[in-house]
Amino acid sequence: MAETDKSLQELDGLFAAARSEPRALPDHLSAAILADAAHVQPGGQPAAPARAARQPLWRQLAEALGGWPALGGLAAASAAGLWIGLAPPAFMPDPAALAGYEDSSTAFADGSYDMALMLSEDLQ
């Protein structure tokens, strides 16, 4: 029993000596832990905002044209142009004529000849 007590006392002395050891992290471990901390820290990742700032192509195109107000005006003008093209108002000139096609009534320069005159010329 006395032997056991002595052993336990010596063990307590060993524990005390172990506790008194200075404790410090190895430098490389401390650096690795801090690197991990910086990497996973909320809001602390420098690469994340750059990724978040990337926008889809259609949005980039819209912004290049002047944003939503400009796109709205463009859409209204396109719709109006399409409507006028399909059903032009009466006071507007014929779009076919504007495109370079002529009416069939003006296609013949000698439309003033009549059949009798032509026949009389043949008889002469």
């Binding site: 992290l25 910086a38 820290q41 809001g43």
Partner: peptide, 27 residues
């Protein structure tokens, strides 16, 4: 503080808790 983006908090926590965890893990 760390969760709110304070990097100095990570250094202080590492200095406080790191050696204790390392000591236990070592044993």
């Amino acid at each position: 503080l760390y969760a709110n983006g304070d990097s100095r908090a990570a250094a202080e926590l590492t200095a406080r808790l790191g050696p204790r965890v390392y000591g236990v893990a070592m044993r």
